[in-house]
Amino acid sequence: MSVRDLSGNRRWLAFGALCLWFLFTIFPLYWVAITSFKAPPDVVGGPTYLPFVDFQPTIKAWTDLLSGLRGEFYSNFWSSAIVAVSSAMFATLLGAMAAYALVRFPFKVRLLSGVLFFVVAMGGFLLGRDVLGIAPASASIIAFTGALALSVFANRFPLPGKVLGNDDIVFWFVSQRLFPPIVVAFALFLLYTEMGKLGFKMTDTYLGLTLAYVAFSLPIVVWLMRDFISALPLEVEEAAMVDNVPHWRIFFGIVLPMSRPGLIATFVITLAFTWNEFLFALFLTNSEWQTLPVLIAGQNSQRGDEWWAISAAALVAIVPMIIVAGLLGRLMRSGLLSGAVK
């Protein structure tokens, strides 16, 4: 049943209920918006609700923020924007490729070769660092590369034990998001500092933060894109195969355009994550590539709870996402596949 089917009083009742719910959801945004225009006495002296009636609006918080009085605002905004957009785009593209492979090609991973990877990688790292005295970063790079090559090679042989298929691989991807991010954040910080000692500066760099975001976004992208891609008709790709279209062209010229709504939805979700992300940004950046969420969080510690300043900064973080969702939302509509089959 739809609300449109209601008539008379029940229609007005439904309308009223929806209005209430709308007010309930919009109020926090409204509160943030008006608070950013309040002067300090209007904030600390009890609640005030209506501009010009309860209090006299001022743009002091905004001029403070935009003039750089409250930290490197412009620099943080742009590093946030650059890192968030580029990592979301890269993660979506990379994840779509992985998802396509997982939908169309059956993989067989022998559990024993996975165990072999773990043992050789860990053992090799410990051996290199503690016995041979190699620097931790070099030891881990050598051990992991060797272990990967060895396990890929070993997977070609009929090893005993369980054979994992595509569903297991997807679960393994998704499981990366099950443990607390702080675990990864610590490990990444250590890894990046060790790499820094080797001469690759990773902390507080564009590459370092973007790579971390891409890696952490990939599971959700693969998981979402797998559903979108498995809904695509196989015949369309087969028609292209018979037509002698190379596989990479089928992917970029046919599969990606057909899954455009899914790609955009996934991109927006990933962007929301990378734009709002706080923990990694806090650990892995300090000045040059510090992002907006870190700046906002910093607002309340520098001079105490200055809600007017925090509100202005929070609005700056919220508004771009609203604009992006509004613009891309139109492109997310389905029905793009009509005419392909049947």
Partner: peptide
């Protein structure tokens, strides 16, 4: 030989057109 090299053309029940 892979499909593209056989110089066949195929018409599918579900048309299989490129929708975009």
């Amino acid at each position: 030989l892979r499909p593209g090299l056989r110089n066949c053309a195929m018409v599918f029940q579900s048309y299989a057109l490129y929708p975009h």
